[in-house]
Write a protein that binds this DNA or RNA. Structure first.
Length: 633
RNA sequence: GGGCCCGUGGCCUAGUAUGGAUUAGGGCGUCAGCCUGCGGAGCUGGAGGUCGUGGGUUCAAAUCCCACCGGGCCCGCCA
């Protein structure tokens, strides 16, 4: 924690010096210099002030330097005015080492912050149509959403996770048509998960059949109408079917490590007439207009500032468009309409937490409060950006200064590399990748990737642990597989497309989750062999003075700064990069500095404590990404 | 046609929000090394760079502005 103190201390001292020198006060942040010989923090205030007043930066820096008063015994050991005009500060390493190692080995929640102060946030992610299995693209969504959820929780937000289930769309009608009119059996082949069966066999093949058997399209339309109207035998069948698929999907989600608070079914949004609850408010505020003439005659539309075309919300026949269903749902999330839903427990999750869902008819009274958040975050890929922008726009007009906010967290899609597509028997012309499509069968299922990763990890683990039981090996292999997958999908920026290549993703070395897990396991092994309770004193901390030790200490002490960055920018990759860098620092330390063999007792004690500190921090960092760190792998 | 995003060695990527330090960090791959030391899923070193192109702003540009090129996405009374 104390790198933050060091930083604040530097800022304060410089501010006082600027005042003493009677320069105008400016806004600045101490930054980390590019090279260690420039110290641990640096300020460039002299440039800014010099620029403003037309002075020479070096002279300004020297005057500020003259005025700088560093209290005795503070976290700042020394400072230096560089000839270019920077003022560089050196941290007092014994203090930094002592405080951060002590915190890291003694505080369970080391790195946590109270930024949220209990503010209520709901985050929606996963939201896979319940007619197929999760593919790699859905996993990116889940991993982003679940990581953000964990980071928000770690920083003092009161977070609920929602998973939207579109159980009334055309995709559902497709598989119902397959089962009812195209002769598909309700029993999947031996050993095949039901969601895989529905997606890989029924959904894809029914869509192929439409061109050969046009009568099926008629049936599909009938099915869709029946589903929308509810009550009929077909509608009940559809409902049971989607529930069955959803339960299989959830198994995959849990396998990847996600948990949810509530499932929101689209059919219940329609049933609850959510739109009607909102429509008058929107009309009163003049957000929507009724079109009297032209080609949109008879429609209710919305026109956004700066947009050319208006968007239809209510068709001329009175039915609602897609976005008209989304707006009231979004409004419900941030409490702009009263909660009209009934709830019941859908299933108990593996972590023991109940998963609630909206229900048709009467639900339970004792449900938690859902919706009515201060902030709603919706994780959907960038193709939805325009529609999401309209939703944010409408809600911002509607919320009336309550400080409620709707936020779209977009990310680029995952596509398949040509090589992986070839291996799956998918033709790719001219390009190095192909966009996925559930309907066309162009995708790779999450479970299949995990199985492949599991197999690879199992082999590696068995090599290293030949005498361990199958159960142990499989348990560890699964954790390594998840680490590889989750880390791979979270480490890069959200707005970069991922071209997924199965072969490359099977790599467990280098900038990967397993690399970090391995460093953690090395640390765990040292601690276990040390057989003592790690402890640190100011004296022993002072003995840590090799550059590899200092770098590791500094990285440990900066954890909360990275956490803050991650939450402020909703950027989980920040945590992934931090964990990787931390592990790299540890490995460098591990190579260079013996711990258990160290003869000097004080040094040994300090190094054991540093190892324990690293172990705890990397564990906390990885837990924010939903990745476990076993003591042995 | 309008809008959004991306472009950094053979491949992938950090840094871009808030412009700064004559070595632009990593990883994969490649080449050469490193344990009779706590786990080699590791470590050290080498080769490999017009930060898409051109202009502008600035004492200073991968970072800001403009134009262009290349790639992706979105723009329905579908969802």
């Amino acid at each position: 924690m104390s790198f933050r103190e060091f930083k604040e201390h530097v800022k304060k001292c410089v501010e006082i010096a600027i005042g003493e020198a009677e320069y105008p006060m400016i806004d600045f942040e101490p930054i980390e210099p590019p090279r260690p010989e420039f110290g641990d923090l640096s300020v460039n205030v002299a440039f800014i002030i010099a620029n403003k007043l037309g002075l020479n930066p070096l002279e300004v820096a020297e005057i500020i330097g003259d005025k700088l008063r560093i209290p005795e015994d503070s976290l700042i050991e020394d400072f230096e005015v560089h000839k270019l005009g920077y003022i560089n500060f050196k941290v007092r390493y014994p203090y930094l080492a002592y405080r951060s190692i002590l915190d890291a080995i003694s505080k369970e929640d080391y790195g946590s912050l109270n930024i949220g102060k209990g503010k209520k946030v709901c985050i929606e992610h996963t939201s896979v149509n319940p007619n197929k299995a999760l593919h790699i693209g859905h996993v990116r969504n889940l991993v982003i959403g679940d990581s953000i959820y964990r980071i928000l929780k770690f920083t003092g937000y009161d977070v609920q996770v929602l998973n939207y289930v579109d159980d009334s769309g055309l995709q559902i009608a497709d598989i119902v048509t397959g089962f009812k009119y195209a002769g598909f059996s309700l029993e999947p082949p031996e050993g095949m998960k039901f969601d895989h069966y529905c997606g890989d066999e029924v959904y894809v093949k029914v869509n192929e059949l439409y061109s050969k058997r046009p009568e099926l399209i008629i049936k599909q339309k009938e099915v869709l109408r029946a589903i929308e109207e509810g009550k009929s035998e077909i509608a009940i069948f559809a409902k049971e079917l989607t529930k069955k698929i959803l339960k299989e999907q959830l198994k995959t989600c849990w396998r990847i490590g996600a948990v949810y608070d509530c499932l929101n079914f689209e059919s219940h949004i329609i049933e609850a007439r959510l739109w009607d609850l909102l429509f008058n408010k929107i009309k009163d505020k003049g957000i929507v207009q009724f079109v009297k003439e032209g080609k949109l005659s008879g429609c209710w539309v919305i026109k956004m500032e700066g947009e050319k075309d208006e968007k239809v919300l209510v068709r001329s026949d009175g039915t609602l468009t897609y976005i008209a269903k989304d707006i009231p749902y979004a409004a419900w999330k941030i409490g702009l309409i009263e909660d009209p839903f009934q709830y019941d427990v859908f299933v108990r999750q593996p972590n023991g937490k109940d998963l609630w869902s909206t229900v048709s008819g009467k639900g339970r009274e004792d449900h938690p409060t859902f919706g009515n958040s201060d902030l709603a975050i919706t994780v959907i890929d960038v193709r939805q950006s325009r529609l999401q922008k309209i939703i944010s726009y409408v809600l911002s007009l509607l919320e009336g200064g309550l400080g409620k906010k709707y936020l779209h967290l977009g990310y680029e899609v995952v596509s398949l590399s040509k090589k992986t597509a070839d291996e799956l028997g998918i033709m790719v012309k001219d390009k190095e990748f192909i966009h996925m499509s559930g309907r066309k069968g162009i995708y790779i299922n999450a479970d299949d990737i995990l199985d492949a990763l599991h197999k690879k990890a199992y082999e590696e683990t068995k090599k290293r642990n030949p005498n361990e039981s199958e159960e142990w090996l499989n348990n560890i292999a699964e954790k390594i597989a998840l680490s590889a997958l989750r880390f791979d999908l979270i480490k890069q920026d959200l707005d970069k497309m991922i071209i997924f290549d199965l072969n490359e993703s099977l790599n467990l070395e280098g900038e990967t989750g397993p690399y970090v897990q391995y460093a953690h396991a090395r640390a765990a092994s040292i601690i276990q062999k040390a057989g003592v309770i790690p402890k640190i004193t100011l004296d022993s901390a002072s003995s840590l003075n090799d550059p590899v030790e200092l770098e590791l200490i500094k990285m440990v002490s900066k954890f909360d700064l990275y956490v803050e960055d991650a939450v402020k920018n909703l950027s989980p990759k920040t945590i992934a990069r931090y964990a990787y860098q931390l592990a790299t620092n540890f490995n460098a330390f591990y190579e260079k500095k013996p711990v258990l063999q160290e003869k000097d007792e004080m040094k040994r004690e300090a190094r054991i404590a540093l190892v324990q500190a690293f172990k705890n921090v990397v564990k906390n960092a990885f837990s924010l990404l939903g990745i476990e760190t076993p003591d042995r792998i």
